[in-house]
């Protein structure tokens, strides 16, 4: 579902990712871990074509990103659900409109939007807040809106970049449980995080980056792989 083959990304002389090869199969749930600046965000941004790789090939959901024309980027993004650390909600629109917006851009018929949006808001437990504005919601609620927006198009792939970075412990678990729910329904989920208690507790596939290099790819593991990586992280 997600394939990176010898991917390198450089910003000028800074190397953000160096020769990374990863293969995530359809229906998998994987964590992308590593300290700040390890290249996690660049990894995610390459997948929704916010950035283009310097070298190497990328495939997402059957689309070859190296050959995808710029005009087709919107089509790629509609087939991906992306969740951001800072939620990225439109402050001047209601919760309902924020979620409906992701459907409107696809040209979905109005009747479908009116059925689908409340259903998705119910799913993330915000059915009651449809008419509120983002500023009146807590961080956890805003992240659930962002999640609702990510899944409203029923994407096969969900990318989350530090989805719990701004949230407290309990709220973080709420968001993580929603992501696990989506995984159970068949979505391929990739979560970039340094929220180690969650990674340890779930014991899933862990892909670890350090200084832009892939240092570990365990089928099941915790945040701390071996002693060496623990020291490197400084814990």
């Amino acid at each position: 579902m997600i394939v990176l083959s010898h991917v390198t990304k450089r910003y000028g002389s800074t190397v953000a990712l160096h020769d990374v090869t990863v293969h995530i199969r359809e229906g998998e749930f994987a964590f992308l871990v590593g300290p700040s600046g390890a290249g996690k965000s660049t990894f995610i941004r390459l997948l929704h074509m916010e950035e283009l790789p310097t070298e190497g090939t990328l495939m997402v959901g059957g689309m070859n990103l190296n050959r995808l024309p710029r005009r087709q980027i919107p089509r790629l993004r509609r087939n991906l659900g992306v969740v951001f650390q800072d939620f990225k909600l439109l402050p001047s629109r209601t919760i309902y409109d924020n979620v409906a917006f992701a459907l409107e851009v696809t040209g979905a018929p109005g009747a479908y939007i009116q059925r689908r949006v409340p259903a998705v808001l119910d799913m993330v437990g915000l059915g009651e807040k449809a008419a509120s504005y983002p500023e009146n919601l807590s961080g956890g609620e805003q992240q659930r809106v962002s999640l609702a927006r990510a899944i409203v198009n029923a994407p096969k792939v969900i990318l989350a970049d530090e989805p719990t970075g701004n949230l407290d412990r309990d709220t973080s678990w709420e968001i993580m449980n929603l992501l696990l729910d989506l995984h159970k329904r068949g979505a391929t989920v990739l979560v970039a995080t340094h929220d180690w208690p969650i990674v340890d507790a779930l014991n899933r596939r862990v892909i670890e980056l350090r200084n832009g290099q892939l240092v570990r790819d365990d089928a099941r593991g915790g945040y701390r792989g071996d002693v060496e990586s623990t020291q490197a992280i400084g814990r």
Partner: peptide, 11 residues
């Protein structure tokens, strides 16, 4: 606002 629209796949 424009950035967010782009990120959710608006043309």
């Amino acid at each position: 606002e424009i950035e967010i629209m782009r990120l959710v796949g608006a043309t």
